[in-house]
Deep mutational scan, measured.
Amino acid sequence: DEVTIHLGDKTIRVDGLDKELLEILKELARRGADEEELRKEIERWER
């Protein structure tokens, strides 16, 4: 499953996201997290 996250004018595509992680990323994005913060969160989950 590829998920596309839209952040204002930026788009991040991620393969096979965990549903819980997806919810966390959506919440972070709502709070104004930037792409770098979201990537760090994704990397934390992948470990």
Rank of each mutant, 00 (worst) to 15 (best):
L25F: 01
K26F: 15
E37T: 15
K19S: 12
G16K: 11
T4G: 06
E43A: 05
K26H: 09
E46H: 13
E2C: 07
K10C: 05
V14P: 04
E20H: 10
K26E: 04
H6F: 04
T11M: 04
V14N: 02
E43V: 07
E20P: 04
R31V: 03
K19T: 09
T11S: 13
E37K: 06
E46R: 10
G32Y: 01
G8I: 08
H6C: 09
V14F: 15
L17T: 05
G16V: 10
L21F: 04
K40P: 00
E37N: 03
V3P: 09
E37W: 05
I12W: 02
L22D: 01
L28K: 02
I12G: 02
R31W: 09
G32I: 01
R39T: 04
K26M: 15
R47Y: 14
A33N: 01
A33P: 00
E36F: 14
D1N: 13
E46Y: 15
E41T: 12
V14K: 03
L28V: 01
E41C: 06
L25S: 00
R30M: 08
L38W: 04
R30D: 03
L38I: 14
R30S: 07
E41Y: 14
R13K: 13
W45H: 03
D1P: 12
A33Y: 07
K10N: 10
H6T: 14
K19F: 10
E41M: 14
E35S: 07
D34W: 02
K40Q: 10
I24Y: 10
L38C: 03
I12A: 02
E37A: 14
T4Q: 10
E41F: 15
E41N: 03
D15A: 12
E35F: 10
E41H: 05
R31H: 05
R13N: 14
L28Y: 03
G8H: 09
G32C: 02
A29Y: 15
W45E: 00
D1Y: 11
T11L: 13
K40R: 13
K26V: 12
L7M: 07
D15Q: 08
R13D: 07
R31N: 08
L38H: 00
G8T: 11
L25T: 00
R31M: 07
R30Q: 05
D34P: 11
T11V: 12
G8P: 06
V14A: 06
L22S: 03
D15W: 02
I42T: 01
I24N: 04
R30H: 05
E35D: 06
